[in-house]
């Protein structure tokens, strides 16, 4: 009925007593997520937004049995926070923190794999299944339950896209923000594979941007074996080479990672690529009509 998170998801918040941790714990609870516990070393025994706080992930896991963790701890401590979660048996970590060194991310990625733990992020807005659960910081107001999957490397641009879909009457199955860093724990291809197997997702909107080759790899997968319609948008058509456009991962490096290359690859794979962000709902309508679902 969705991917990665649903009504049964039990959320732990690492860094819950910080400004972001506290605010977004409130946001997640308002969305309907089961936030079962929080961790801040030294703050065990207190409460935030009615959620019990523990000194360690192990204690939180023993007492509250979370299935996912949302990590807000500052970049210098993110890696260890993730290791702690994995060692305590958690299999899904959503890392909101920005400016995590990619060296740390590489180690986290492979350590997680050894233990069957998936990372969403870092430097991401998290993910949400309307009517189910949200793990992250995407504003609650943009969503509506439905059958369009959304996957994106961006934050606010995704909120705009989802709000646009909602306004046009197209609800979402699950919306996943992969993050703006050069190394993402979960990629477009990983997410598309999950959407492929999800009977409640009719089609997918994917929002990419310049830098790297993740969109080209997604295009190859879509062309070969996805089988559901995809509408795409690529940010950064006007970005010059060699400039890092806000996201650490958004850079055209030695001629690689241009918007043109991504748009061409996606179009070749049969993806309808919007030139303007506000064209996306119209293209979604066309795609759903073609498969008889609109």
């Amino acid at each position: 009925m969705s991917i990665l998170v649903d009504a049964s998801t039990r959320v732990l918040v690492q860094g819950i007593t910080g400004h972001q941790g506290t605010n977004h714990t409130r946001g997640m609870k308002a969305f309907g997520s089961k936030v079962v516990g929080g961790v801040t070393p030294g703050k065990g025994g207190t409460e935030v937004e009615g959620v019990p706080v523990f000194d360690s992930v192990r204690e939180a896991v023993d007492a509250t049995h979370p299935t996912a963790t949302c990590i807000f701890v500052p970049a210098p401590y993110t890696r260890d926070a993730f290791y702690e979660a994995v060692d305590a048996g958690i299999k899904l970590a959503v890392i909101i923190t920005e400016h995590v060194p990619f060296h740390d991310m590489l180690k986290m990625l492979y350590y997680g794999r050894l233990h069957g733990a998936r990372i969403i992020g870092p430097n991401c807005p998290g993910l949400a299944t309307p009517g189910g659960a949200k793990v992250g910081i995407i504003p609650n107001v943009v969503f509506r339950e439905g059958r369009v999957g959304v996957v994106s490397r961006s934050g606010t641009l995704t909120y705009e896209m989802v709000a646009g879909l909602t306004e046009a009457g197209f609800g979402q199955s699950t919306c996943v923000g992969l993050g703006g860093d050069p190394v993402n724990g979960t990629t477009f291809v990983d997410t598309l594979e999950l959407f492929h197997d999800d009977p409640r997702t009719d089609m997918v909107v994917m929002v990419g941007e310049i830098g790297g080759v993740a969109e080209e790899e997604a295009a190859e997968y879509i062309g070969k074996s996805f089988g559901k319609p995809v509408v795409g948008y690529i940010a950064g058509r006007s970005a010059p080479p060699g400039k890092r456009m806000g996201h650490a991962g958004a850079i055209i490096d030695r001629g690689r990672g241009t918007a043109e290359s991504k748009v061409n690859a996606l179009q070749k794979a049969g993806v309808k690529v919007a030139k303007f962000p506000y064209e996306v709902p119209g293209l979604v309508r066309d795609s759903l009509k073609e498969i008889g679902k609109a």
């Binding site: 994106s152 490397r153 961006s154 934050g155 606010t156 641009l157 995704t158 909120y159 705009e160 703006g180 929002v207 941007e209 310049i210 948008y233 940010a235 950064g236 058509r237 006007s238 970005a239 456009m245 806000g246 996201h247 958004a250 030139k275 303007f276 962000p277």
Partner: peptide
């Protein structure tokens, strides 16, 4: 703008 993706998309719209 707020957010790198939205800022980039805004530059693109102006450019187009």
């Amino acid at each position: 703008a707020n957010g790198a993706g939205l800022t980039m998309a805004t530059l693109d719209v102006l450019y187009q």
